[in-house]
Design a protein around this nucleic acid. Structure first.
Lengths: 115, 115
DNA sequence: TTCTTATTTGGCAATTTAGCAAAATAATCA
DNA sequence: TGATTATTTTGCTAAATTGCCAAATAAGAA
């Protein structure tokens, strides 16, 4: 694999990594509805303010959000027009996995037919 | 955030995590072209066989691939119909980031206009 | 200027992840 | 059966990630 190709996968992985956390996925979905300040996100998430801020900076480094300061308040905006389809894809995988699991249970585990 | 909602984001993050590695993204893209045995993937990737095997098991645990044994050879198959769009979305983000960076350079850094 | 509010940064411990090497499995072949 | 090939598992160490706390910044209000 040449260097260019390697760089390509590293770049993709960097974006994926930024999204690979429950809290950050939640943030992304909230921000899809509209911009929010850090304080509001903290309220929704319920973690330490510094934790929320750090998660936002991870998303920002990956270029998934940008921020805008108004007074002392910082608003974060999502810049990922394809989020919906993106998340739908992930949900499709999850749903298929669940379905498969269920089928295995139904046919192979006694007492699971009625599930 | 209720438990159900939390579970949802954790499930999504688990899938994302499985994809958040250059090697695994490469594997996914190779498998999109068609099933491959571990040996072939190792050859393409050039890492230790055990490393390749472990990456594949991560993808498998996330339900992104399944495997089929033929003799001593194990073939891996991708089961993620939406991969293409998924990766396109990531690439879109990367490209926009690159474009923005370039614009910043052009307008704000002396000697960068000709880029 | 000092106080207050909103946010970011630095430090640190706990957990997770990555990748190699060696040992364990599994299936086929001689 | 013993040898061979393909793959997985285990053990280990190094590196990265997470989240809280405390300290540092930044902007506006008193």
């Amino acid at each position: 694999m040449d260097t260019m190709t390697q760089k390509k996968y590293e770049a993709r992985a960097a974006v994926m990594k930024a999204l690979a956390h429950p809290t950050r996925l939640y943030m992304v979905e909230e921000l899809q509805k509209g911009a929010q300040c850090v304080c509001k996100l903290q309220e929704l998430i319920g973690a330490d303010m510094s934790t929320v801020s750090k998660h936002l900076s991870v998303l920002k480094s990956a270029g998934l959000v940008y921020d805008k300061k108004e007074g002392t308040t910082v608003y974060y905006f999502l810049k990922m027009p394809c989020v919906s389809e993106f998340i739908s894809c992930v949900d499709t995988v999850i749903q298929r996995n669940a379905t498969e699991q269920l089928e295995v249970a139904r046919c192979c585990i006694k007492g699971a037919q009625q599930l």
